[in-house]
Design a protein around this nucleic acid. Sequence first.
DNA 1: CGAGGCCTTGATACACTTCAATCCGAGTGG
DNA 2: CCACTCGGATTGAAGTGTATCAAGGCCTCG
Lengths: 251, 251
Amino acid sequence: MMTTTAPAAARAMPRPPVAQHAVAERIADTLRLLQDHVVISRRIVHAGDSIYQAGEAFDTLHVINSGFFKTINLAADGREQVVGLHFKGDWLGFDGIAGGHYGCDAVALDTGEVWTVRYDALLAACARHVPLLGLLHSAMSREITRDRDSLLSLCTLSADARVAEFLRYWADAMAQRGLRHDQITLRMTRAEIGNYLGMTLETVSRALSRLSREQLIAFPERGRRDVSIPDVQALGAYVQRSVAPVSTTLQ
Amino acid sequence: MMTTTAPAAARAMPRPPVAQHAVAERIADTLRLLQDHVVISRRIVHAGDSIYQAGEAFDTLHVINSGFFKTINLAADGREQVVGLHFKGDWLGFDGIAGGHYGCDAVALDTGEVWTVRYDALLAACARHVPLLGLLHSAMSREITRDRDSLLSLCTLSADARVAEFLRYWADAMAQRGLRHDQITLRMTRAEIGNYLGMTLETVSRALSRLSREQLIAFPERGRRDVSIPDVQALGAYVQRSVAPVSTTLQ
DNA sequence: CGAGGCCTTGATACACTTCAATCCGAGTGG
DNA sequence: CCACTCGGATTGAAGTGTATCAAGGCCTCG
């Protein structure tokens, strides 16, 4: 405890492989506990609908029951940045707790259902039923971890690798939730993806073309919004390869 | 509520100006409440000491009583990324809650004091004294907001602007805490700063030289670890200028 | 059919990286 | 005390990944 100097970079970060279905189970637990202990208001949303907007007074947290969502950070000067993608079981609105106002926009990427709970009611429910508090904290913790992973990818990966990692992440999220993951439908335009990944839409397009040329992905439909991913692990390997360009096998 | 299409980018994000000393007060409250309701173990740390390391079992949360800290995310393949800077009153360790293991390294940048509390004891204390739970949630919420702001800067600002924003942020954090902020001591090497900001150390160095040439900062000491910031607002203005390069006054 | 989004692809420009040389300040030991 | 070393910082020159600009293609919808 409290080593003065960390050994080396070789110290591999464990990142325990998430047990299959552990995520699905956690999500089911979350939805069930909420249903049993808090007053929920359910809401169907469609692509483009916003769940909340930056600056609105914060009252409520939201849990995704189905659908796909993005969160967008806006700076005072108008800069817009997609800072997160959110799927079934994810919570939305944590950014509002501290300041009493939401800090970003949450927008539906397609049709879905959102469960909304009053934050004060949720806290009261947590007091009565402690496991709910555990779920809440875990969700916030995971959000922090996820944001940091985004920072890591953004700073350490090339544009092509970031696109590959983006697809891998999306497919992974689908797999963890028991949804189809060998073929995913990108619900964002190239411009949105580029914004999220810190590159232009042209670069996204070129990256997708290259990945397709290398058979890591394919476009099954005539339109290019559906991406089939024959082998998710190969995508991960591609990212790794781009990190250590010419694998120094000897040494 | 639930507008289908957001008006426009012009919609300025409020970002309420943090009332001066509100932060200092919150920090004082946090430290006092912790002292009064939880068993704390205090610890003096020195530059390079790690508070915890990625992969260690998560038991405890930490609050900075004094000093400066960085958090480093490590990928399985050895990539390292400074993902956060932390000052007095900040909490460390939230990333460990969800998985039961810390997700990054927390390292002291110089001498400081850290208060450590057991997470389970903290939860128990929160149950007895609810305001403590409010502080905890606010801290987590702020962490999320901060990470997203980092993403925004990283994706939308040029290298020079990112360095300026970094200095502005640091000075701001000092001011909010009632510490000296017209002159700050960078406790990181150019390489660390570059890693944090997603650029090389040479680019950091050049950016600092340019900022100095434009009189936005100065190096009072012979060594160049101390940076004096005559006018923080001018730094902010510099960032803005770089966002809208040739201010289109007409139009 | 034409119009308008969105996407792809090419040519060019440039911000940043990479590589390399030099400089500076802090220790260290003769 | 000075010479030496060593890590960190600065600065220049060349290289490159990505942005920018521009043209054209593909669906969808009216």
